[in-house]
Amino acid sequence: MNIAIAGGTGFVGTALVDELIKAHHTVFILTRHPEKYHNQSRVHYIGWLYEGARPENALNNLDVVINLAGESLNSGRWTAKRKQKITESRLTATKEMNRILAACTHKPSVVINASAIGVYGVSDQLTFSETTESIGEDFLAQTVKLWEHEALRSKIYSNRVVLARFGLILDQQGGALPTMVLPYKLMAGGTIGRGTQWLSWIHIQDVIRGILFCIDQPKISGPVNFTSPEPTQMKPFGQMISSITHRPHWLPIPSFALKLALGEMSMLVLEGQRVQPTKLLHHHFSFSYPTLKQALTDLLT
């Protein structure tokens, strides 16, 4: 298949491209700086989001479109300027993707747009599935709602649209896990905040397998939660890191200290939501790492 990926050089995108190449697909990576990369037999770098760029000229025979583009939530303290950049980067990329799709004569079978479980809002008590109404009024929830609203406009140009609502993605090198493990390596690991906040996590390999699964399953559309079937709370999450790394879990990090250091961005670790991957399970997706012990053992040993 011919597959276009925006954000193909990022954390998830890099892992996804590797798997697509192994499966002998042809990949077109949309990037602001195509001159930094060398085209290969199955990977082509296409310029976009700069003046004069016309990526649609190279993208008229697409079977699948995947949009992973957006400013990292961990890119800095959430000042007003940073929040604007986080929101606008997602909306700008998604609007441009829709413009490209409108300019193409061939209709892709599916558009997969990245999203986040932050859309649901935060709660220690509720469990969220794809059919749950959002209770979120915070910055992240509102940003995701705007992002998804724009992404759903691509229904006009494709047979179906999947909103991939990512949870906390666990990987050896990218994402949040290396930062979370570091205190344990320094013998200073402990519970972050009150410890009861939920972490709805997923192993990077299950993210990639889940995306490929959604491509191949024509009945899957709309929101899809990319989380493991066994979310956990912050305290047992830390205790599992401690157990697997054989390092102590003893030095708590109080909420006020994180709020002082990170400001509003501290909600990424101090708040959470318990999310179930109901749609993936309904369609019989099999997780390679359904439990936290399996995932962390694979990543940390």
Rank of each mutant, 00 (worst) to 15 (best):
T278K: 10
L170I: 04
G10Y: 08
L281I: 12
T94L: 06
T79I: 12
A58T: 12
L260P: 00
N39F: 06
A15F: 05
G52K: 07
G121N: 11
L212Y: 09
G167I: 13
R99M: 07
Q239S: 01
P248M: 00
V110L: 13
L281N: 07
G175N: 02
L177M: 07
M240L: 05
G167L: 13
K279G: 01
M267G: 00
K81I: 14
V122E: 07
R82Q: 15
D298A: 13
M267S: 09
L296F: 01
L280A: 04
D138P: 08
D206E: 08
K83M: 15
Y157W: 14
L177I: 01
G13P: 06
R42K: 13
E71M: 10
Y289K: 05
G118M: 09
A261N: 02
P108Q: 10
A6M: 12
H249E: 00
I100Q: 01
G76W: 12
V12R: 03
G121E: 10
G193A: 02
W78L: 12
P223I: 03
A257Y: 09
I3W: 09
S89Y: 07
R209V: 01
D206L: 07
R77T: 14
A141N: 06
L126I: 08
I100W: 04
I220L: 07
F226N: 02
V269D: 00
S286E: 12
I46K: 08
R160H: 04
L177T: 00
S72R: 09
L268I: 06
G136F: 10
R209S: 11
